[in-house]
Simulated scan of single mutants.
Amino acid sequence: MRRPDHRRPVIVRLVLPFLMAMTLTGCKPEASNPAAPAAEMSPMDVSTVVAAAATVPRTLDLPGRLASTRVAEVRAQVSGIIQERAFEEGSLVRKGDVLFRIDPAVYKAEVDARTAGVARAEATRTQALRQSERTETLLEKQAASTAQHDIAIATLRQAEADVASAKAQLARARIDLDYATVRAPIGGRIGRALVTEGALVGQAEATKLALIQQVDPIYADFNAAASDPSLLVEQAAGKEAAEVRLVLPNGSLHPDAGQLLFTDVSVDPGTGQVSLRATFPNARVALLPGTYVRIQVRQGTIPGAVVVPAQAIQRSSAGGAQAYVVVDGKTALRPLRTGALTGAGWIVEEGLKADEVVVVEGFQKIQPGMPVNPVPWKGAWSTEASRKS
Rank of each mutant, 00 (worst) to 15 (best):
Y107K: 01
R315S: 10
I151V: 08
G96I: 03
I81E: 06
V267M: 06
I295H: 12
D256V: 03
T55N: 13
G319C: 01
G188A: 08
V49N: 01
Q235V: 00
T48Y: 02
Q213R: 15
E140S: 10
G369Q: 09
A144M: 03
S132H: 07
Q203I: 13
I82Y: 06
R7C: 06
T331Y: 01
P63E: 05
T263K: 05
R120S: 13
A242K: 07
Q142H: 11
A164V: 14
V201P: 01
G290Y: 10
A143S: 05
Q158D: 15
T331A: 12
D97N: 12
P249K: 02
K365I: 05
P335Q: 00
P255F: 09
R58L: 06
S386Y: 00
T48E: 02
L177R: 10
A354D: 08
A67M: 11
I82M: 05
E205A: 15
S68P: 08
V372K: 02
A340W: 00
E40S: 08
G258F: 15
V56H: 01
R3G: 01
S317M: 11
S230E: 15
V10G: 11
G188W: 10
G290P: 00
A52H: 00
G379M: 06
A344C: 02
A310T: 00
R101G: 02
G272Q: 10
E73K: 07
G329H: 03
T338V: 10
P309H: 04
A159P: 05
S79D: 04
L276F: 12
S132K: 06
A76G: 02
G272M: 04
G80H: 07
A164L: 10
V71L: 14
L14N: 08
R189L: 12
T279F: 12
G191P: 03
